[in-house]
């Protein structure tokens, strides 16, 4: 069965047609060509497909596309403003937090979910917040440092503004 879904993705209202069994991940990639969200396992065990749904971190492979009717979805493509990167994206570049880059979209979204609720995380809190995101290249060292750097940067700019 195919149905209409209307929701907000990265700030834009979108409408698309999906098979009822289709996951949000497949809808993003195949119907909306938003291929920044990656598939690593399709079982919720790697986090490469992480997105925010109404501000909550989710594996889009574990969500039926039909479920986001009326919801607000944020993918990696929606992290940056038109002309400047999100501080987490900046920190990942500065801190060499990516090697191959396949897990990067999911990690960025997971890091945003963390920093949206906690701008002063400990190293341990960062490690547990991204424990659902497998990275095989970095050993997480530079990823964790970059998220801590981004938090510090965001704290500083929060003070300024």
């Amino acid at each position: 069965m195919r149905s209409h879904v209307t929701c907000t993705i990265n700030g834009d209202e979108v409408e698309f047609l999906v098979d009822d069994r289709q996951t949000l991940l497949d809808a993003l990639r195949d119907e909306l060509q938003l291929t920044g969200t990656k598939e690593g396992c399709a079982t919720g065990d790697c986090g490469a497909c992480s997105v925010l749904i109404d501000g909550r971190l989710n594996c889009s492979c574990l969500v039926f596309a039909r479920e986001v009717e009326g919801a607000d979805v944020l993918t990696v493509e929606g992290l940056a403003d038109a002309d400047h990167l999100h501080p987490i994206q900046h920190a990942f570049l500065e801190g060499a937090a990516l090697q191959c880059g396949i897990c990067t979209p999911g990690l960025l979204v997971a890091a945003k979910a963390l920093l949206d609720r906690n701008l002063k995380p400990t190293e341990e809190e960062v490690r547990y917040a991204i424990a659902g995101n497998l990275c095989r290249c970095t050993g997480y060292d530079k990823v964790v440092r970059s998220i801590l750097d981004a938090a510090a940067e965001m704290r500083d700019s929060a003070v300024v503004s």
């Binding site: 919720g44 986090g47 594996c59 574990l62 969500v63 547990y128 917040a129 424990a131 659902g132 995101n133």
Partner: peptide, 9 residues
């Protein structure tokens, strides 16, 4: 029960 991603579901 699982990662933060799973916790939210």
């Amino acid at each position: 029960i699982g990662s933060d991603q799973i916790q939210n579901r």
